[in-house]
Design a protein around this nucleic acid. Sequence first.
DNA 1: ATGAAAGCGCTAACAT
DNA 2: ATGTTAGCGCTTTCAT
Lengths: 342, 342
Amino acid sequence: MAVTIREIAEKAGVSRGTVDRALHNREGVNPDVARRIKEIAASMEYLPNTAARALSLHKEPKKIVFILPDTDSTFFSFIQTGLAKAQEEYREMGTLITAVHMNFRNISAVTEQLDSLMSEGIAGLIITGPDVPELREKLNSMAEKGIPFITYNSDIQSDKGLCYVGQDLYKGGKVAADLMHKLTPCPSLVLAVAGKSDFKAHTERITGFVDGMKEYSKDYDIRIIEGYNPYKRDTFSAVLADPEVKQHVKGIFISTGKVAATMEAVKQSGLLGKVRVICNDEIPEVIKGLKKGYIDFTICQDPVNQGYLPVKIMVQHLMGHPSTPDKWIKSPVEIKTVHNID
Amino acid sequence: MAVTIREIAEKAGVSRGTVDRALHNREGVNPDVARRIKEIAASMEYLPNTAARALSLHKEPKKIVFILPDTDSTFFSFIQTGLAKAQEEYREMGTLITAVHMNFRNISAVTEQLDSLMSEGIAGLIITGPDVPELREKLNSMAEKGIPFITYNSDIQSDKGLCYVGQDLYKGGKVAADLMHKLTPCPSLVLAVAGKSDFKAHTERITGFVDGMKEYSKDYDIRIIEGYNPYKRDTFSAVLADPEVKQHVKGIFISTGKVAATMEAVKQSGLLGKVRVICNDEIPEVIKGLKKGYIDFTICQDPVNQGYLPVKIMVQHLMGHPSTPDKWIKSPVEIKTVHNID
DNA sequence: ATGAAAGCGCTAACAT
DNA sequence: ATGTTAGCGCTTTCAT
């Protein structure tokens, strides 16, 4: 049978209340006594009973807030599916998980909302967003006040966070290169469509892709097409208007969400089906292209688990799970074709 | 605040004990009263508190037995990783999960061992194994005695099981065909290496593969090579000895675990790297081939989750989770190259 | 600073 | 057939 605080109390010659206070570093306990209690607990390999803890906290559950962008997107709806799964699974387990939507184009509004969440009293935060100083500093200051945070999907660089749940985008680009190499003949022209260069997700993928292609052969002619904001079809059409490009291009890697615009330009130039296309994520335009046979592969990152895992980790952390998670929980690099999309 | 048995008891004008008995269909409660209690519980949308239930069952946890084949294999070591994860996660949650190894080449010994588990008293069973009548009947009789069972990896056909966790092998074969089509020119010879035809896993994959290839084009010449037991390298070498085969073969799909023998024959005939190869699972020989560039893809089924999910579902079932799981929890069809193997 | 005790929701043993 | 009650391990409030 597992060790309980009662047994620790007996061994230490104190009451159960004191053991609880000591193990949770609550104030009002003699430092020497506290140290001794912790030693005894460690020597007995004490592990708290999760069920008992959850039941005891039932009246005032610890509040976990999950921040989502306020924009509608298929990608984030997958994340919400994972969140919902976690909410259902950790119902009445000593925690209360709430979703809050925020507009990340207005960072000062975001930090204000975080402040008001702090004053309402929360136990943990799960967040995504741009890696900008204001947000980073706000999160660091929260962490210093004892509120742990987890980032998901897109990291906010900080060593104060509990962990980051998201894909290794560089590796994703390499996998794309691997596939492109398998699909295209070797001396040939391959285009890589990049997004805004200040959005990390896209540049890392492109770098991985280019590095990967070059590893296969120096003879690939890789041309990077910068995306603009708003990305205009004309940008890509202009590139394909060059007859030389049109003649030699054999593959296109679209690292951004601007799939529809790019595919439209491909269609206009009569290259549909003649050029191999690799995209990212399971968004509707990509699924459409896969079904029509115009897109060959899409590289996914299991967004459902990007919603589920951060909650699971936060719950375990707050409920006294002994081990600290890895700093980076890597989402898988999933290769999908029309036959294994969900 | 959530509804508790206490509130149901008050509303029904009975004691909490009676509510507990009624909701769990225990004997010794007036049928009319029981029905009324259930109605009230449903109308109040009562959901049992998992933490309280777990804590209360702490002294005599429900025993869940996870059956594993007694053979060493990398594939099953992944399944054990998932099992270990679940054991750690559901520690002290009212259940006790134990692994038991059995030798499936001796079915009568297996049924005897199941009988003795029954007499020791278990609450749930998780099992894989050959789909033979003796085993099927034993499981059905256990289910009738109230012991739920879940099958994983390879199904044992029975409508009495709680669910089956495993891959859609036919779909896996189709995905392999999709990839093979992308890798090989169209009129060409493609070999499909099948295992013993009485092992369902292999025949279903082969059928999916052949169907898939035929959908892409009637011009593929697909030749199925039957595996023997023990599979001899000569079997495959003999096929490749035919100069016509050797000249025209462009792709090989290996649905079995006999990768080493097949690859050795490919090497002997000087086709290494000249022929596209697709395999299944992340076993050492396959990883070796991927790294050397002799194997292009391997199609996996997330074995870690095949160990983890059955336990999770069984725990939730025994701990009174209201919803019944889908009859078939499909493992993903994962496409892996050397760049996204773990 | 520490001890004592009540209570979280559920189960099971005991009492009626 | 049904009611009553102790107790699972932990947290927290109230005494001391």
